[in-house]
């Protein structure tokens, strides 16, 4: 009940925006290839549902596969940075700096390396999703309360026990922060990978529709992609809240 009441203002805002979209495009006579009517977009979505579901499945598959690899690589990188003082001094600043590299500019390289099948898209997703996961997990390790570590050391804890009983649980909130970002980015990464060349996916769909000036089809693809991104974010957030629920409010 409370969550319904909290979501109510947002629902009203969305409704108002939808009405403004529909009314604005009708009254101002905006051409459909600039901004199609919302009703046309929804109609087009319904009309092409079979094709859209196929493309959505492809995009989602690339995104999830890339995200899975990003989780593995990101966590391994974070552990490496945490475990080695040298890596902390060298890799970590590099990782931070690399976040300002325009990833879009690197994406064509992935196509060169991995070709036009699914793996180039997965690689682009990893480009987008790896950094937030690695950096936030590494930050999670760094934020571990030194008092707890010291206490466990007085109890005779070795490196392995310190890692398992102190560092790892401490890093979980950071990991889930990274996962939320990475989940959202993964959809964008998959779409970009598809633009660069591919046969299926919502990126391909919107690009083709755009070439044909079919505004309502472009927008239905964009709407679906946005919705998927939001759902990925929400799912990652929910997973994090479930895992961390027992800890209460994080300080």
């Amino acid at each position: 009940m409370r969550s319904v009441r909290r979501a109510l203002p947002l629902g009203i805002l969305l409704l108002v925006l939808a009405v403004m979209w529909e009314a604005g495009t009708s009254f101002l006579n905006i051409p459909h290839y600039i901004l199609p009517k919302l009703s046309d977009v929804l109609y087009s979505t319904w009309d092409n549902r079979a094709v859209l579901v196929k493309h959505l499945g492809a995009t989602l598959g690339e995104a999830l596969l890339g995200l899975a690899f990003s989780v593995i690589f990101g966590v391994v990188a974070a552990i490496g940075i945490e475990a080695s003082g040298l890596a902390k001094q060298t890799l970590y600043p590099l990782l931070i700096a690399s976040q300002s590299v325009p990833i879009i500019a690197l994406s064509p390289i992935m196509v060169m390396w991995f070709g036009y099948d699914i793996w180039s898209k997965v690689a682009v997703v990893i480009l987008f999703s790896f950094f937030p996961l690695a950096v936030n997990t590494a930050d999670g390790f760094r934020s571990a309360d030194p008092g707890i570590g010291e206490l466990l050391r007085t109890m005779g804890a070795g490196k392995r026990q310190l890692f398992l009983k102190w560092k790892l649980p401490s890093a979980l909130p950071g990991f889930f922060t990274g996962l939320k970002l990475a989940a959202t980015f993964s959809i964008g990464g998959a779409t970009l990978g598809e633009w660069l060349g591919g046969e299926t996916g919502l990126g391909v769909y919107t690009k083709r529709a755009s070439n044909m000036l079919r505004g309502e089809a472009v927008f239905s693809g964009v709407l679906l992609l946005s919705l998927t991104g939001v759902l990925m974010f929400a799912a990652a957030g929910l997973l994090g809240r479930m895992v961390l629920a027992k800890r209460g409010q994080q300080r």
């Binding site: 008092g147 707890i148 206490l151 005779g156 800890r247 994080q250």
Partner: peptide, 16 residues
Amino acid sequence: KGRAGYMPQRDCLMPW
């Protein structure tokens, strides 16, 4: 090995 139990100033309980 003789070992002292150390109770720090902050309680340092593990929130998890």
